[in-house]
Design a protein around this nucleic acid. Structure first.
Lengths: 111, 111
DNA sequence: CCAACATTTCAACTATCCTTGAAATATGGA
DNA sequence: TCCATATTTCAAGGATAGTTGAAATGTTGG
């Protein structure tokens, strides 16, 4: 994953509204949610929501498909996996950051 | 980890300069790097670097200590762990994103 | 075709971010 | 003390992000 892609993805998630939207889409799973439903769940105004959804789509974190007169958005789990992989590799020393066992104390290998 | 904290941390990393700084600090390990050395490694102008370091510190992702006339910055691995834990739990469905066992190189389970 | 619904686009405005260079602060050594 | 080094602060400027409401687009069913 390229640095530029990572920065774009991070910027897309670095906003309360968009993080909320993405969380809702993750919860919804591959089935996704219609734009209007996302608006109901998050309380974001339609035009603002459309702006944020475009931002997330541009970052590759969500995809959309037309279904009747609805537009269904869904989270792109592969992109999120890639982002987490990058952060784990490049920003956490490689291994010690898997939250399953969680050490997180502060002592690990030097450079 | 609170949503607001997460957004702040994501925003701090969502900039090419700051992501580069943070990566350098992660590579340096707990020993950290002097501000000037970070500037050398990243090519960021001093005042701009200071701005970005303050941003990272404010987000809790780095800490600083004075050493003679140098200021040594180091990555806060615990904060990064917390961020990754949040993203894994809330933005990846909970389980399928932990890169611990698997490779994490480039290919992971297909969609 | 027309009407109702779902979503997006547009323009205007405010707010915030980032960069730059100069000046300020702080520390160590001669 | 005085000077050099290391870092931060400040103010000014341009660039970008976000919100709002109105208008436009697209879709379905009567």
């Amino acid at each position: 994953m390229e640095t530029k892609t990572v920065v774009t993805a991070l910027a897309a998630l670095a906003h309360e509204s968009r993080l909320g939207v993405f969380r809702a889409l993750v919860q919804a799973g591959p089935a996704g949610l219609a734009a209007g439903r996302i608006g109901e769940l998050t309380g974001i105004a339609p035009s603002s929501l459309s702006f944020h959804l475009k931002e997330l789509a541009h970052a590759g974190l969500v995809s959309s498909r037309q279904a009747g007169r609805f537009v269904i958005y869904s989270a792109r789990f592969d992109a999120m996996n890639g982002l987490l992989a990058y952060l784990t590799e490049n920003c956490c020393g490689g291994e010690p950051c898997c939250p399953s066992s969680l050490n997180a104390s502060g002592k690990d290998q030097a450079s």
